[in-house]
């Protein structure tokens, strides 16, 4: 990451003034967090190139979250762009005491939820239900009356990943989000709690319910 290769001493000194924890992180080998903060400082100072470097650094994470939440790539790119724009506009409010990733993930998570809620509101007058999933699911898996998937339908759609994605869109937005954060993005319970502003116990119970629901949905295919 070229943008992060900046003279360490003055920036480190500035960071010491702002937050000693950051230096500790750098000393402890958490160079990623330190580099991110350096880029944040440069972006705050008006360096658009530094912000682009930040985007490049976290675009995969944000895009993955958006894609798994909204279900299609074009919309996910729009959502991801809006997340980064929000982040850019909010850089002034970013506290160095918190990790940049936690701050960014919180923006991304809440923006995805807001986006889905707004989409549900827009589609509600057309007679759709509580979620957009019925219409926006990437794959519509046919089921027999007893709930078992049709064999020919399965044969036609051998891409199991798409089936899983489709079934995920039937979960509530909160369940989908916590599944993505934990089982796809690999965040710890503590990071999820910080990102979503939840108690640890809530994270634990919500994640369990989301997983159990997903198990019930995927059992016919497993």
């Amino acid at each position: 990451m070229q943008r992060a290769e900046v003279p360490a001493a003055p920036l480190a000194a500035a960071a010491v003034d702002e937050d000693r924890e950051l230096v500790e992180q750098a000393r402890a080998g958490d160079a990623g967090a330190f580099e991110a903060l350096v880029l944040v400082e440069q972006a705050r100072a008006g360096d658009a190139g530094a912000f682009e470097a930040l985007v490049r650094r976290y675009q995969g994470w944000v895009f993955t979250l958006a894609l798994r939440m909204v279900g299609n790539r074009a919309e996910a790119e729009d959502v991801a762009q809006e997340v980064f724009l929000k982040a850019y506009r909010g850089l002034a409010g970013f506290k160095a005491a918190s990790r940049f990733t936690t701050w960014l993930y919180a923006i991304a998570s809440h923006h995805c939820l807001n986006h889905l809620q707004a989409r549900s509101r827009r589609s509600a007058p057309a007679g759709r239900g509580r979620s957009h999933a019925e219409s926006d699911a990437p794959v519509a898996v046919e089921r027999l009356p007893d709930g078992a998937p049709r064999a020919d339908a399965l044969l036609e759609r051998t891409d199991f990943v798409r089936i899983v994605q489709a079934e995920m869109t039937h979960l509530t937005e909160e369940h989908r989000l916590i599944l993505v954060l934990r089982d796809i993005q690999g965040l710890s319970y503590e990071d999820i709690a910080r990102t979503l502003g939840l108690e640890l116990g809530t994270v634990r119970s919500r994640l369990h319910r989301a997983r159990m629901e997903m198990k019930a949905r995927l059992t016919p295919y497993l």
Binding site: Q59, G60, W61, F63, T64, L67, R68, R73, A76, E77, A80, F160, V161, V164, Q165, M168, L179, D183, I184, Q185, R211, M214, K215, R217, L218, T219, L222
Partner: peptide, 14 residues
Amino acid sequence: RAVQAVARLGSAEP
């Protein structure tokens, strides 16, 4: 298997 299936969705790039 269900949780692993979700995990296998994996990450994506724009």
